[in-house]
């Protein structure tokens, strides 16, 4: 019960931080989204020991483990694009799948090579 209450309070802190970052972006006309500003800001708060990790760790764990749930409504919005899907859906899907495969091959293989070489050097 106590940890549930703590999780809720900590999640509220993250919501507040998100609202603050959004207002800052609008106020200063920054060309980057509020979420990125929020990440940098929170990271700085932790790094300079202004807030302690255990004050917010429970909340961050819950938000990260339920992240997929927060994307569900946006996924459902696909029903607003029936005509686009009917006209070009297949081509769009093939483009996305093809390109995503290439990105994974390229990024994954380069990273695997570099970390293998690193392990060999360390051994």
């Amino acid at each position: 019960m106590k940890s549930l209450l703590r999780t809720i309070i900590q999640v509220l802190f993250f919501i507040l931080l998100a609202k603050l970052s959004d207002s800052l972006v609008i106020w200063l006309h920054l060309p980057i989204p509020g979420s990125i500003v929020g990440i940098i800001f929170l990271f700085a708060l932790l790094e300079f020991k202004i807030i302690r990790l255990d004050w917010i760790e429970l909340g961050s764990k819950w938000l990260l483990s339920e992240m997929l749930l927060f994307f569900i409504p946006a996924t459902v919005s696909i029903i607003n694009y029936k005509s686009l899907i009917a006209a070009n859906g297949i081509q769009i899907l093939i483009s996305i799948i093809g390109s995503t495969l290439l990105v994974m091959l390229c990024a994954g293989m380069i990273a695997q090579r570099i970390s293998e070489r690193k392990e060999r050097n360390a051994a």
Binding site: I15, L17, L46
Partner: peptide, 23 residues
């Protein structure tokens, strides 16, 4: 979406929570 938007509103706080992992 009038109801579901409450969930979408948590995408940004969750993204900011990634800072904890980076730290």
């Amino acid at each position: 979406d009038k109801g579901a938007i409450w969930l979408s509103d948590l995408v940004e706080p969750a993204t900011i929570a990634l800072a904890v992992m980076l730290y």
